[in-house]
């Protein structure tokens, strides 16, 4: 059962990932990414992290990707010109080849390392929200607070960067 779910959503994730990367229209890419992220959320549940899965859907797909869509609309980003970039064939192929090689290498590493290892049965502690929250507010309190600060900074930065430029002519961002 679990295997079936895994296989289905794995294929889905891979396929939509390819679409993200390959499609000309950025809107379609964004939507594909949504699909990928939702599949990943399923995996998170399978792996005993339901809270994270929920967060993924809420924040990532619900907020971040929506932001992406807003910006795409705002900037009226068009499809990439139909003509492929001139003179970049080598780099393209090299990049794809590199990616494949990289994946293979990583796979090799993983295979050598973890072949035959199985998961232990899930423990209560791992899954429960309570343990996550208590760890967050005890051991990881400092990073938590700092992340809060980071978000504040990000808000300010984004606001400043994106506002209309001051009245004087010829100012650079």
């Amino acid at each position: 059962m679990e295997v079936a779910i895994f296989v289905i959503f794995a294929l889905l994730a891979l396929a939509s990932a390819v679409v993200v990367v390959a499609h000309r229209n950025p809107v379609y890419s964004t939507i594909s990414l949504v699909v990928t992220l939702v599949s990943l959320a399923v995996f998170f549940i399978l792996l005993g992290a339901p809270f994270i899965a929920a967060l993924q859907i809420l924040i990532y797909t619900g907020a971040i990707l929506v932001l992406f869509l807003f910006v795409i609309m705002l900037l009226n980003v068009s499809e990439e010109a139909t003509h492929p970039e001139s003179g970049r064939r080598i780099q393209r192929w090299l990049a794809i080849l590199g990616a494949v090689t990289f994946a293979l290498l990583l796979g090799l590493g993983v295979w050598n390392g973890y072949r035959g290892t199985d998961f232990a049965p899930m423990s209560e502690e791992l899954v429960s929200l309570k343990s996550l929250a208590s760890a967050l507010f005890s051991e990881y309190l400092l990073p938590f607070e700092i992340v809060g600060l980071l978000l504040l900074v990000a808000i300010i930065a984004a606001t400043v960067l994106a506002r209309k430029p001051p009245r004087e002519e010829g100012s650079t961002p």
Binding site: V21, A99, A103
Partner: peptide, 14 residues
Amino acid sequence: AALFAIGTAGVLTR
């Protein structure tokens, strides 16, 4: 790993 590689290819290509 596969997803990561796909993402990398996208960064370098688009």
